[in-house]
Design a protein around this nucleic acid. Sequence first.
DNA 1: CGGTATCCTATTAGATACTG
DNA 2: CAGTATCTAATAGGATACCG
Lengths: 131, 131
Amino acid sequence: MDSTARAEDMAYDVFSRQCPSRGTLEHVTGRWGALTLGALHDGTFRFNELRRRVDGVSEKMLSQTLHALERDGLVHREAQPTNPPRVDYELTPLGREITDRLMDLIRFVEGRMDGVLEARERYDNLAAGGR
Amino acid sequence: MDSTARAEDMAYDVFSRQCPSRGTLEHVTGRWGALTLGALHDGTFRFNELRRRVDGVSEKMLSQTLHALERDGLVHREAQPTNPPRVDYELTPLGREITDRLMDLIRFVEGRMDGVLEARERYDNLAAGGR
DNA sequence: CGGTATCCTATTAGATACTG
DNA sequence: CAGTATCTAATAGGATACCG
C-alpha cells in the first residue's frame, strides 16, 4: 500500500531529463510565463492590457507565452467574433492553483530583495579583494 | 502609517522592467536554477554529486548557476583546501526559505501533470480539426 | 576532484512590417 | 484590436581541452 502510494508520487519527476513536467515547469517559471501568469492572477485581461501589465514583453513573446499556457490548460482564451475583435484571457481553475503557489514564491523573493542585494555586495567586494 | 506600510510592500515589483527582483527570480526559477535549488533541498552535495542529481546539466551551466545563486546569497560554498579538493554546496537559511516555496510549486505541478497532458491533447486535436 | 577557457551552434528574443 | 511573418541580434548552451 505504501509502495503503491510511493509509485504514484514518483509518476512525474522534474529532475529526470525526459519528464514532461520539466517542460510545463519551464512554461510556468520562465521569464515571460511567470510574469504573464502573475498578471492574470489579478483578473481577466485583453491582449494589449496584458502587454502593458507585463512591462517589457514584446507582442511576439506574449503571443507565444499565451499559446503555451493555453495548451497546457492553465489559461483560457475567450475570443468574441466582433469587429474590431475582442479577446479575453483568464486563468483556468488549474492555472489559478498553480499561480497561487507561484505568487507565494514571487512575493517572498520580492520581500527578501534587500538581503539578496546585500549578499551581492559582499560577494562582489570579496571577489574584488581577491584579485 | 498605512501608506508607509504600502510603500514598503511596493519597494520591489517584479512586473517592472528595471526591478532587480526580476533577475533574482530568473536565477531561482530558470531551467537550471530551479533544479539546482531543488537538488540542494535534499541536503549538502559536492559538485559532481549535484551534476548527477540534476540530470542533463553540463559542467559549465552548473558552475554558472551555482555562482549566480551563491552571489544572491541563496547557496553557501564550502571549499576544503585538500588535495584532491573537496567542495560542498548547501542552501543558506534564505535559500532554504525560497526553495521551500519553489518545491511547493514544483511538487504541485508534478501532481497535476495528468491534467496538463490531457489539456494538451484536447488543444492539439482541436487545432488539427481546425486546419 | 572541481572547476575555467575557448570555440561553436542552437535557441530565444527584439524590431519591424504586415493582415483579418 | 489582436495578432502573424520575417529578419536579425543577443544569449544560452554544449563539446572539448586544459589547469591547480
